[in-house]
Amino acid sequence: MNTLEILFYALSALAIISAVMVLVSKNPIHSVLWLILVFFAISGHYILLNAQFLAIVNIIVYAGAIMVLFLFVMMLMNVKKDNEPQKQLWVKLIGVIAGGSFLTLLIALVKQNTSFQGRDVLLKDGNIGLIHPLGQALFTDYVVPFEISSVLFLSAMVGAVIIGKK
C-alpha cells in the first residue's frame, strides 16, 4: 500500500465519519463544525486528484463563506439543543432504512456495471486542474455562462435583501 492509497483511505474515513457526526450531533453548532471538517476532507481529495484550483475554491467558498453564513444565522436564532424538535423514532428508522437501501441499490448497480471496471483515476499527475488551463477554458469556451453567473449573483443578492427586509 503506497502513500497515495493511505491518504485516500484516511481522507475517505475522515469525510464519512465527519458526515455521520453532522447527523448524530444534537447541537447544531457542532454539526456546522463537523461539516467544515467534511469540506476540508473533500478539499484534501481534490488536492490528491491534483485539482488544486477547485481545492482552494472549495475551502474559500464552502468552509470560508457558506459555513460562516450558517454560523451567523444559527447564532442569530439562538437555537438551543434542548428545544430542538426530534422526529419520532420510527420515522428516523424509516429514514435510515430508505437511505441505506438507496445506497445498497446504487452500489449493486455500480458493481454490476462493466464499463467502470478497470478504469483508473489519475492521482497526483495531470495538469488540467491547475489555474492556467482552467482559466483559459473558462474565458474562452465558457465565457457566456461565466457572465450569466454574474447576473445570477446579482439576482441572488437582490433577492436576499428583499426577503430579509420585511
Partner: peptide, 27 residues
Amino acid sequence: MPIEYYIFLCLTLFSIGVIGVLTRRNA
C-alpha cells in the same frame, strides 16, 4: 486508484445526506 472506490465514497456521502434530510427536523 480505481474509479469504483471514488464512486462508492461519493455514494456513501450522498446517502448520508439523504438520510439527514429524511431524519432531521431542524431546517
